[in-house]
Design a protein around this nucleic acid. Structure first.
Lengths: 208, 208
DNA sequence: ACGAGAGTCCACCGGTCGGTGGACGACGGT
DNA sequence: ACCGTCGTCCACCGACCGGTGGACTCTCGT
């Protein structure tokens, strides 16, 4: 009885790399591949694999959302996130979506195989750098979690809008914009708008 | 007479993926692999391949610098940059370092094989998105090139320093800091410090 | 039902930033 | 030697931002 695997990644190179690496293991069988989230969900339905190796950054339905859909259907396959990046936001999103594990693509072959077997057993498996990040995040008493409005304001500020302009864009007074900014300063541990934008970006809260 | 290739990438998954894909071509032979820039230079010396497939983001000596070293020795192998990212700064750095081509990792197998054969012949081969970016860059009459001082100031501003603080850090007056900022605003096409920081970041001029 | 808390909203000062104007030295070409 | 250009430097206003104080509405939990 071998483990049935599904490989999900938008890069052909990575897919064939994974398939090649996994084929060397006697007890693994890659039953399907997918290039994006939609396809991944469809493939899971058709082949019902034991473990899904899921990339995060993909066009269309991304890895985190696809994971959430798979987990939403009660008992689905174990989802092992396998990505290049280890930013806070990515990790948190993946874990919240219900990922069984989080590995980085620079992991060697044995680590990967071992992680898949653990994931199949239902164990949570996280790469050391990921654990370190999560631990570092836990230490901070106040989690840098901004409200929707605060993130919205920071997004506009990042694009160079003045407080008054942001207010007009959001249909609120300029004074209110400042309040949102002040509160985000506090949460991010900074004292001016520019540092707030860079901090929010580094925390994965806004895009540039 | 087959083409001798060197695969350089810090991710084992990508390396095996490339090797697997390239092995399917009759006229290709992967003679060596390397996990970082230093190793790549050493492998080139030892095996003298025809084409090097080079990743950009790597620990230690990165792809662009490694490429520069390979090209510095007069005639070396053709270097085909193969990376996930298509940011302006990466492309420019790679091309300036003397890369023969620039491909994205989402390229299918045939595109890759074709590009390698062209690169071996000395042709410059760029992925369509890369060409588009370069073209877009050419259209702008004023290239966003900042002076050393301007970049320095923006770096401090990105970290949340006030003009006066930047002045103290750089041993110049606050008014001078403002001048540098103003000039950078002009070059970047923005009107405030925050937008300048994000624009400079997107242009690859500063790190966060 | 009631208070505590979180989130959103607004008005008023003081310091800071964005913008203008100008000065100085270092190159480079005709 | 000349002038133009570029990079660096500085001083002075007006407008904007950062900070304080307070109000309103929801959602909790006991």
């Amino acid at each position: 009885m071998s483990l049935r695997l599904l490989v999900v990644d938008d890069h052909p190179v990575v897919r064939t790399g994974l398939v090649a690496m996994l084929s060397e293991q006697e007890d693994f069988e890659v039953v399907a591949e997918a290039a994006d989230g939609e396809e991944a969900v469809a493939m899971v339905r058709r082949h019902s694999p034991d473990v899904v190796l899921m990339d995060l950054r993909m066009p269309g339905l991304d890895g985190a959302e696809a994971t959430a859909r798979l987990r939403a259907t009660g008992d689905g396959p174990a989802v092992l996130v396998l990505t290049t990046y280890d930013t806070d936001a990515d990790i948190v999103r993946a874990v919240e979506a219900g990922a069984t594990g989080y590995l980085l693509k620079d992991a060697p072959s044995e680590t990967l195989a071992d992680a898949i077997r653990r994931a199949a057993r239902g164990e949570t498996v996280l790469a050391p750098p990921v654990v370190a990040r999560l631990a570092g995040r836990m230490r901070r008493p106040a989690a840098p979690v901004l409200t929707e409005r605060e993130v919205e304001v920071l997004g506009h500020v990042a694009h160079g809008l003045s407080n008054a302009e942001v207010g007009r864009a959001m249909h609120i007074g300029e004074a209110t914009v400042k309040t949102h900014l002040l509160r985000s300063f506090e949460k991010l541990g900074v004292t001016d708008r520019t540092a707030a934008v860079t901090a929010a970006y580094k925390a994965g809260l806004i895009e540039l």
